[in-house]
């Protein structure tokens, strides 16, 4: 029933500015994939191109073995949830949810049954006759989700769906979305700048930075084996340490780590140490160092090739 979303070489230029550069990934069928990155990283533009709201400058989008790139928004059958809900302010909750069925000329009885079913799903039945202005932010987003799901879309696209909500509501809604997704199993692509949200909700994470894909992987891979200094810095509250190679040793403040004989004297380095790895670390403890990527080696990686002694607090 569900389909993967295949994105190949997607590029978007606004005038001379390239917002998205050669983005390629596959959002697996029935899973939640998070597009994670800071604001301005092009993740929302990717999502809007998949929905057809933005036209790509190059690249293609495939769903169900069908090339979507040339299709209109109307034909794509994607559900889209906006950060600011985008509910129709002149329609009731029920009319909002029924809109997608109505414009597709669905039979009234079918439509009403489907609206009821979805309002039940998002626990909003008592509010069917309310207007959006009479609802809280969390309630509005639940209505927006019901509205996006009503025409049975092939995939669900969520653009910072919890971004406008306060922390408590965001937590609740996140958990609730997780449960809902387990129940429905619709392929979902979630845009977020919140790494915690991505790690908690997603089966797969695509980390974006300055319009490019930095890394694609499971939350575990992204967290434990960041592929680039950016991913290491952005995912997980890592400590950034600046070091220098002196006589085959890496000097990080007062720490000296051996095993850098292959590196030239005076080479500077950046180390990322995830906070988790430092919890409870005391003098004399052993932590792991990955020296395969000398520009950005990581302290605390599972795949460490070298060990270093913590001789002082960092």
């Amino acid at each position: 029933m569900s389909t993967p979303i295949v994105v190949e070489g997607l590029t978007k230029r606004f005038g001379s500015f390239e917002a998205v550069t050669d983005v390629t990934f596959t959002a697996p069928a029935g899973a939640i994939t998070a597009l994670l990155g800071p604001s301005g990283s092009g993740k929302s533009t990717v999502l809007r191109m998949i929905a057809g709201l933005e036209e790509p400058s190059a690249g293609r989008i495939v769903m169900d073995d069908e090339e979507l790139t040339v299709k209109s928004v109307q034909e794509r059958r994607v559900g889209f949830v906006f950060q600011h809900y985008a509910l129709f302010r002149h329609m009731t909750v029920a009319e909002n949810v029924g809109f997608g069925l109505r414009v597709r000329k669905q039979d009234k009885t079918v439509r009403e049954a489907r609206v009821r079913e979805l309002l039940e799903l998002v626990h909003m039945e008592p509010f069917a006759d309310r207007y959006p202005e009479q609802l809280s932010g969390g309630q509005r987003q639940r209505v927006a989700l019901a509205r996006a799901l009503a025409p049975a879309p092939r995939v669900l696209l969520l653009d910072e769906p919890f971004g406008a909500l306060d922390a408590k509501v965001r937590q609740d809604l996140r958990r609730w979305l997780d449960e809902l997704h387990r129940e429905l199993g619709v392929t979902s692509l979630l845009v977020t700048h919140d790494q915690e949200e991505a790690l908690e909700l997603a089966n797969q994470i695509v980390v974006m930075h300055e319009g490019r894909v930095e890394q694609v992987g499971s939350p575990g891979e992204i967290y434990d084996r960041p592929a680039t200094p950016f991913v290491a810095g952005f995912v997980g509250a890592a400590n950034v340490l600046h070091g220098e190679v002196v006589g085959g040793h890496i000097h990080l403040g007062s720490i000296r780590i051996p095993g850098a004989a292959q590196l030239p004297w005076g080479e500077t380095l950046i180390a990322h140490v995830p906070n988790d790895d430092l919890v409870g670390v005391v003098e004399g403890d052993t932590i792991h160092v990955d020296l395969r990527n000398p520009k950005a080696f990581l302290v605390g990686s599972e795949t460490s090739t070298e060990r270093a002694d913590v001789s002082a607090r960092t």
Binding site: L53, V73, R76, G79, F80, F88, V103, R147
Partner: peptide, 24 residues
């Protein structure tokens, strides 16, 4: 946003105008 939402829900340009933009 509302016009975009309307289109992702399957409305044509005209349906979007008459059902979403004009009432607003």
């Amino acid at each position: 946003d509302e016009e975009d939402a309307s289109r992702t829900l399957g409305a044509s340009v005209w349906q979007t105008f008459f059902r979403v933009t004009l009432p607003n």
